[in-house]
Amino acid sequence: MTTLTLPSRREESWRWADPEAIAAAAQLPWSDAEADADDHWLDLPGARLVFVDGVFDAERSTLGRVTVEALDGGAHALGQHATGPGWALRMAADGVEDPVQVVHLASGGANHVPAAIELAAGAAATVIETFVGSGWSNRATRIALGDGARLMRSVRMLQAGGFVSLREEAEVGAGASLVATFLGAGAAGTRVDGAVTVSGQGGFAEFGGALLTRDDQRQECAVTVRHDSVGGSSKQVWRAVAADRSTASLAARVEVARDAQQTDGEQSLRGLLLQRTATINLKPELEIFADDVKCAHGATVGELDARALFYMQSRGISRVRAQALLTRAFVADSLDRIGDETVREAFVADADAWLDVALAAPAVWGTSS
């Protein structure tokens, strides 16, 4: 049996990581319960893929243009384990694909799946992934967007237990657009680990989402966007809501190479504490070697505004309802960027279901920030 080697928190990029949770998730016992993907499909046309404990289920899948093949997970500390059978979406120039949905069902133990998304010049695609069940679900996804290509990628991490780790590597060509949104609204630990390179002139990359934590749960993101060409732009919009004794950590970095003049990079990291026992860590970073750029970052951690709560209560809205409305508006800020209405509504519904549980606790508090 191969020994599982995990990163150490002594490394700066893993300082808030939870390797113990990954090791524990990999040892979770297997469940005999029949996994069902039907409850997780969105009402959209296109390919539907089901993976059960990392194994492709052909009987419950419709491939469309997607292929299942052996792929390399790369050299990343976690992604390297995801080498072997996976799925790939490759599109020729100017092709447009119906949405591709992938549902990952985990019943215990560890499972690893690589993926590749390659869009030639002018092609467009939408990919939605959903993670449910329990165990260590480890993924490595490589994305290559040709000039003018467009990809909208949305990922729901809804596992009830264990850990979900995502390694995302993307290269964005000239005039191409990548919009990736992640939602952690389950009870599992998560890590979104991204490395995005805007290599073509005028390329655009948006990477963000919401991490919602409660109980003793820990979730984190660690994303770097690098600009290597003139006139590129990027956004990293992340929101975190933490309740009970949980921890949410957001680390976002923008690198601008010497020749990447006229780069426009924006970071927005915001955290909302529902109880004082919870923790939110934020770490925005800028490393700029060009002199003609427009880059900005903001990072704030706070609580529900007591003045807003008082105002809403004075208008006849109950305190619990006021708390729910303010928290939902805070989270929605990171999900509104999903362009497809059906996908966006599904993500909002997942966040609402999480908030209904978290806000039911009597200890939710708020003071003016």
Score class of each variant (00 low, 15 high):
R167D: 15
G161D: 06
G208A: 12
V256K: 13
A176K: 06
I128H: 07
A361H: 15
W30K: 15
L304H: 01
T277P: 05
A248P: 12
E59I: 08
V301I: 14
D36A: 01
G186I: 07
A25D: 06
F51T: 04
R319W: 15
L286P: 08
D98P: 15
T277F: 14
S249Y: 00
D94R: 05
H40E: 04
F347A: 12
W365V: 15
F289C: 09
I128D: 04
G161P: 03
G339W: 04
V343N: 00
E11P: 13
A360F: 08
D356M: 07
Q101D: 07
T5A: 12
A116D: 12
T197P: 04
V357Q: 14
A251K: 00
L44D: 03
R9Y: 06
G133V: 00
L335Y: 05
V155Q: 15
S229N: 15
R65V: 01
A358W: 14
V241K: 00
D94F: 07
L78C: 02
I280D: 01
I117M: 09
G339R: 11
Q27S: 09
A23V: 03
M157W: 00
G316F: 06
L6T: 02
L309N: 13
Q80L: 08
D356A: 15
L272I: 10
D57F: 10
G54Y: 11
Q267A: 10
L309P: 01
S334C: 01
F347N: 06
E169I: 07
I280C: 03
V172M: 04
F163R: 11
A332H: 05
E97N: 13
N138L: 11
A242K: 06
G148T: 05
P85N: 06
G109M: 00
R65H: 07
L178V: 05
L286C: 02
A195T: 08
L6D: 04
R65K: 14
W238K: 08
P99F: 02
Q101S: 11
G298Y: 04
A106M: 12
R90N: 02
E220P: 00
E345C: 07
R315Q: 13
D53L: 09
D216N: 05
D340P: 08
V103T: 11
L119V: 02
Q262N: 13
I117W: 07
A123T: 00
E171Y: 12
V241A: 05
